[in-house]
């Protein structure tokens, strides 16, 4: 039952949801393990000026509200999840593209999803 009733539990989805992917045409993301320290978040491409970087690919983070009674999913958690994943992709930065609340996702009453690009910025 705890498995069912972990309201704020953020179930990280290791991979993009198979069906009903909110970001159409998004390539399959890398299999990565969440890392201990999250990648640095860049909200705007302009912040990357003067910082040569490598593109490690797209990365997502999401939190799921299993059922109506549970607490609504949090965007920040989804974002943090994305940062962790970027770090897991050996990226030291992630450029946030967008976050949004999604419904009608299998297994989730409501889901907060964030999408971005994992980057490896030269120091």
């Amino acid at each position: 039952c705890s498995w069912l009733h972990t309201p704020t539990e953020t179930r990280t989805t290791s991979a993009a949801p198979a069906s009903g992917n909110p970001f159409k045409n998004a390539p399959a993301t890398h299999k990565s393990r969440p890392s201990a320290s999250p990648a640095k978040l860049y909200k705007n491409a302009e912040e990357l000026v003067g910082k040569p970087f490598r593109d490690l690919g797209e990365v997502y983070g999401s939190t799921c509200q299993v059922n109506l009674q549970d607490a609504p999913p949090s965007i920040s958690s989804a974002r943090r999840n994305m940062q962790l994943r970027a770090a897991g992709m050996k990226g030291n930065a992630v450029l946030l593209h967008q976050c949004e609340m999604v419904r009608a996702v299998a297994g989730c009453y409501q889901q907060a999803v964030c999408q971005g690009t994992a980057l490896s910025v030269s120091q």
Partner: peptide
């Protein structure tokens, strides 16, 4: 094809 579309469109939006 050198960068992922999301990054490309983000960069394009930013005008950089």
């Amino acid at each position: 094809g050198k960068i992922n579309p999301g990054l490309a469109s983000a960069i394009q939006k930013s005008g950089m």
